[in-house]
Computed example of a mutant assay.
Amino acid sequence: MNADAETAETGRAGPAVLPLYAAGFVTAFGSHGIAANLGFTGDLGSQLITLGILLALYDGAEILLKPVFGALADRIGLRPVLLGGLFGFALASAAFVLVGNPALLGVARFAQGAAAAAFSPSAGALIGRIAPQRRQGRAFGSYGAWKGLGYTAGPLLGGALVAAGGYPLLFTTLTVLAIAVFVWTVLVVPDPPPLPRHREGLGALLRRLGNRGFLPPTLALASSAAALSVGVGFLPLVGAGDGLGPIATGAAVSVLAVVGSLTQPVIGRVRDAGRIGDRTALVVGTLLTAVGLGFPAVVGHLAGLLVAAVLIGLGTAMITPVAFAVLAASSPRERLGQTMGSAEIGREIGEAGGPFLTGVLAATLGLGGGFLGIAVLVALTAIGGARVLRSA
């Protein structure tokens, strides 16, 4: 009996999905744990240039390679690509420690990003394959919550590790973590065979990726990622402008991450129970996120930051599990890896583009104008959410 049939009969994926959640934590922790703790010597200009390059390398590798590895996973199997990515992540992290040359940090970051491009969409696609249809929202909600935990813990835990033992200790920890998830995956995650695929030309691919089952949820994921990045990067600036210290502004960012992580599994369960439709969840989640982004432009100080953090956290928590569940339900199962890989490109673009657009708008309109501008853009993506196939 294959994995799809087995989970369909049992009605649950059981412990098989837990290593997939852990894989989501690895990529989030690996990305933010290093990115938030990059330190350099030299003049400020060279620091900023180097910082920008190092921050872009990880996400750049993912943007370039996720569709490639997603298509490969559909061809040879999701589990082998997942395992290869985890092993590659561990190898890249360990190599940096063994070589001991800080100048190779950029190479290590690109290699880690390339490995994450393999195992991240494969983990998402495997959840879509082995979690039963009636529990997909809950499964993707838990997956998003574990990634959120990685984003939250990454800067703090990464900073503690760097303070205790420098980059070698941080990269050693990432190596051990990736190996542990690799072994866990080998032991408990099933290996669903690749499904037969019909030949698909470029025109058919573009039509499939442009339909209502792919484009609206991917656009929602992009706006969600943009909002999270803007919140993490710019909410502290609002607090600092109002005279708040780093503890208060850091608390606001933590509230955003914690609310999102705790709420996603709940939203997934509500969605699976049929108490909220996909269309409603995406539209309401997007509008909540937009209101949260616009709030700091109207109300400042700690209260304004906390309200903004809660609204952004709730909004993105509504979007993420539902959007992934819609993608999994609407994609041909034999091309689920390619679908997830392509959808995650939308997230990466949103994560990079949101702060960039906010910064450009803030440079000309002030910080409040930057928040209002990105809030309007996010609100407009609700039009896409209204076009998904299933509604409440």
Rank of each mutant, 00 (worst) to 15 (best):
G11S: 06
A13R: 03
G14M: 09
V17W: 07
A22F: 04
G24W: 00
F29S: 08
F29W: 06
L38Q: 02
L38F: 03
Q47P: 11
G52E: 07
L54Y: 03
L55H: 02
A56D: 09
K66S: 12
P67M: 07
G77E: 09
V81A: 13
F87K: 06
F87V: 14
A90D: 01
A90V: 15
L91K: 10
F96K: 08
G100T: 02
A103D: 13
R109Q: 11
R109F: 06
R109I: 01
A111F: 03
Q112P: 06
A115R: 07
A117V: 04
A117P: 01
G124A: 15
L126E: 09
A131G: 12
Q133P: 08
R138P: 03
A139G: 09
K147D: 14
G159V: 00
V162I: 02
G165M: 03
Y167T: 15
Y167S: 03
V183G: 06
W184K: 07
W184L: 11
P190K: 08
P192E: 12
P193V: 14
R199W: 13
G210R: 11
G210T: 08
G210L: 07
R212V: 00
L215R: 12
L215N: 08
L219I: 00
A220F: 05
A220S: 12
A222R: 01
S223W: 06
G231W: 02
L235C: 04
L235Q: 02
L244R: 00
A248R: 04
A252Y: 05
V253F: 10
S254P: 00
V255N: 01
V259L: 02
P265N: 03
L282Y: 05
V283F: 11
G285C: 11
G285N: 12
T289D: 05
A290W: 05
V298C: 07
A303L: 14
L306W: 01
V307S: 06
V307I: 14
L314C: 09
V326E: 10
A329V: 12
S330F: 04
S330G: 14
R335G: 12
T339N: 15
S342H: 10
E344H: 15
G350M: 02
G350C: 10
G353A: 11
L357T: 12
T358Y: 13
G370W: 13
F371R: 09
I374H: 03
A375H: 10
V378W: 11
A379F: 02
G385Y: 06
G385I: 00
V388M: 11
